[in-house]
Every structure is written in C-alpha cells, then in structure tokens.
Amino acid sequence: MSTPSEAVRGRPEPALSVIVAERRQLINLAYRLLGSLAEAEDAVQETYTRWYAMSPQRREAVASPGAWLTTVAGRICLDVLGSARVRRERYVGAWIPEPVPDRTEWVGGRAGGGSAEPGDPADRITLDESVNMAFLVVLEAMTPAERVAFILHDVFRYPFAEVAEIVGRTPAACRQLASSARRRVHAARPPSAATASTAGQAGLVRDFKEAWEAKDIKALVGLLDPDATMTADGGGLVGTVLRPVEGSARIALYLAHIADKAPGLVLLERTVNGLPGLVAQHAGVTVTVAAFGLAGGRITRIWAVRNPEKLRSWTDANGQG
C-alpha cells in the first residue's frame, strides 16, 4: 500500500467518480464475505469513511485507490466476521444469510422499472453461483480467515500475495486457508447433485408452489427428498420453527399447517440469490423468502427467511407474477 512521498506529491487526487465506481465491487465482495446486505453496506460505508479521513496528500499518494479500498474493506469484513460469530451464537433460532432478489425482476421495488443508478445495494449484487444460498450457508461454517481467503482468491481471483496483506498471514498460510475452505465446499455438495438447467429447477419449484397452494401433502412429499431439511430464520422477531424440520413428510405437514394458519397467503415465483425460489406475501407484504437446494430431481433443502430485517430488499416489491 502506498504512502506519501515526494515522488508522488504532484499527482492529482483521484477523481470522485473513480472512487465511487469501486462501490459496486466492494458491495459484491462484502456481501459474499458477510452474508448480510446491511452489514456489507456498513462495511463499505466505513471503508469510504476511512478513505476520506486521510489527508488529500495521503490520498494522492495511493497508487491504486481500488486496491486500497478492497484491502481496507476486506480487513473490516474480517473484523466483522469475528464479532458476528459471537452475535450469531446468541441469535434466536437458525441464522440464514440475507436473500437478495434479481434486479431484472425487481429493481427499486418496481418490476421492470428503476433508474440507472439504483439506490438499493441489492440492485448492485451480481448474481452467480457464489451467492446461491447453499454456497453462502457453507461459508458460514468456515473460520473468518478461511472465508476471506477463499472468497478473495477463488471468487474474486486475487493473488495470494494480496490476500495475505488483507488477512494478515503469509501467502502460504492463505493458500492453505483457501484449500481448507475449498474442501468444505466440495464436502457439502450432495453426491447426486447434477447441474440442472435453470428451467428444470424453476419447473420443480413451480410444482412445489402449486402443491403447497393446494395443500397436497402427497404431492409435496413426492417433490421432497426423503431426507430433506427445512430451516427457517425469524430472528426472534416473527413466529417460526426454531429448529430445522427434517424429513419430507414432516416438512409437507408443516407447510400445509402454515397454509391453514395464513389464509390469503400469495406465493410468487422469483429468483432468490440467482436461483429459482419463492416469495410469500400476506396482505401485500413480503413475509417469507424461500431458497431451495436441489439434487436428484428433488428438493433437498429449503431455507425460509422470515426475519423482516432481512427482507428489506423485498418489502416494496409488487405482486406481479
């Protein structure tokens, strides 16, 4: 990282547009590192605060503002991850990463609308396999250093020399961290998981939606893997199961129970973290966002986010199907 020197004293300070242009990359990085849009936005804001806390001379001396911002954001996220592990141990029920919508479906709360510069950080998240819910859940099981090294190197393609500067370890140690994280990802992948087309996944989710709407327990059981697991996240703010529901029959009965308790529940097919998912609305308000894990032509995992603090990117979305 550069420091002020006589050699760069005449260099003009980086233009505001250059600095702001890094925001999207930083939000994408921080979301993958933290699994929370709110925390990602805070981390990026803190990064910019530190940038502008420097004197103009020090900012002029930074050879690569983008690299500086990434380094600082990575270190902030590493610190946040350390404290988050403690906070999540006190969390009421299961903690699921915050889901994000596809901006081509909902931009700024208007399907097909929005401006060229969306204000919601969810609109700046690039959806790919590194943000699908199954992947993010595996990341939660990693140590902070493993997660940062793995995401920076394997997802964002930073060389280990640069990763080492952020993590505060040697390049060799960072290589080992990323390798350990990679093994976790491979171990969590179901043996029967084949790469299904998006259309195939969407069809399975649609069948699941229709069976749920019809309260057809037999159909739900047939769509679920016998050993399927459903995990819900209410954060102690709304009612939901505190422990995972295991087994296709139990999940089907639980879903039918929900349908009975909430008449008028509207289910919408939406993209959740880059893959087909469902959004449940009641009286026009988004109350649940569900992501799915699929393998062998059946649903193996359901992650149902009900914590309203994690649904801010979905609350203004309209109900167009």
Rank of each mutant, 00 (worst) to 15 (best):
D216Y: 06
A194M: 13
A7I: 06
H257T: 14
E213Q: 11
G168D: 09
R124S: 06
T195C: 04
V155R: 11
A317H: 07
R298W: 06
A63P: 01
F292C: 00
R169P: 01
V20R: 15
E269W: 10
R87P: 02
D120T: 01
R298M: 07
V305L: 08
G168F: 02
G274S: 09
L278A: 07
R270D: 13
L237C: 00
L152K: 05
S2N: 14
G119C: 00
A219H: 04
R124C: 03
A219S: 13
G222L: 06
D102M: 03
V100A: 02
V221E: 15
P276N: 07
K218N: 12
R88D: 01
P191V: 13
V72H: 03
S248G: 08
L177R: 01
S83A: 10
T229G: 01
T3Q: 11
A134W: 05
A211V: 08
P101C: 03
W51F: 14
E98N: 10
Q176W: 10
E246F: 10
A149W: 06
S130K: 06
R301N: 08
L152M: 15
K310W: 05
V287L: 11
T49P: 00
A122K: 08
I19L: 15
R301G: 00
A317N: 11
A304L: 08
P171H: 07
L127R: 11
R189N: 05
I299Q: 04
R250Q: 15
L37C: 06
L69E: 05
P191M: 09
D216F: 03
Q281K: 13
H186A: 13
T70G: 01
R59P: 11
G35M: 01
V238E: 12
L69Y: 08
L242T: 14
G82M: 08
V167H: 06
I166F: 11
A188M: 08
L139R: 04
P101N: 02
R301D: 07
M1S: 12
V185C: 09
V62M: 12
A67L: 11
T240D: 09
V266E: 15
N307E: 07
A43K: 04
A173R: 12
G321E: 11
E60L: 04
R90M: 05
D207I: 00
W303R: 09
A73L: 05
L29V: 14
A283K: 14
D216S: 12
I125Y: 05
P308S: 07
T315I: 15
H282A: 09
A214I: 10
T195A: 12
A173N: 06
E117T: 15
